[in-house]
Amino acid sequence: MTIEPQPAPIRPGGMHFVLHALTRKDVLSGLLFVGVALFGLWLSRDYPIGTALRMGTGYVPRLLCWVLLGLGTVIVVMGLREGQDERRLDFSDRSGWRPVIFVTASLVIFGLTLERLGLVISILLLIAVGAVAARGLRPLETLAAAAVLIVLSWAIFILGLGLTIPVWPEW
């Protein structure tokens, strides 16, 4: 997270000002809560609410969503009124995307392949994709790490714990 050295003088009211304020962390987190609350209210629109005595499926979820909506709004307003501008997210810094994408992708691939292709191949895939997430990838090192990790997980989980995960692809 880099801190912008010197924010340019901003004319209040302009489009730029709005965008600028929106990147504040408090405003963004408030918006996140509001969004989740609205989504929850929409999802639970058909859940029966019931009464306090006999609560239906929707009683507690809807109550919580309304509270979250209120809290989120307060957080947004407080964030907008906050004078200081230091706690902003800098979107021009794109280095954050690489780990997000590759770490997530490696796990998703691992989850999808484990049962079909077996432990060994899914670990190889997880490491191949996961290794891209860090900068300065060294292929030989990573290969060695993969070999160690495969042997280790086989020893712990298959040999030691007797888990019923297929080791090799099932044809």
Binding site: V103, S106, L107, F110, G111, L114, I123, L126, I127, G130, A131, A133, A134, T142, A145, A146, L149, S153
Partner: peptide, 9 residues
């Protein structure tokens, strides 16, 4: 992190 990632999975 590769080891942590794998054990998490």
């Amino acid at each position: 992190y590769l080891a942590i990632l794998l054990f998490c999975g």
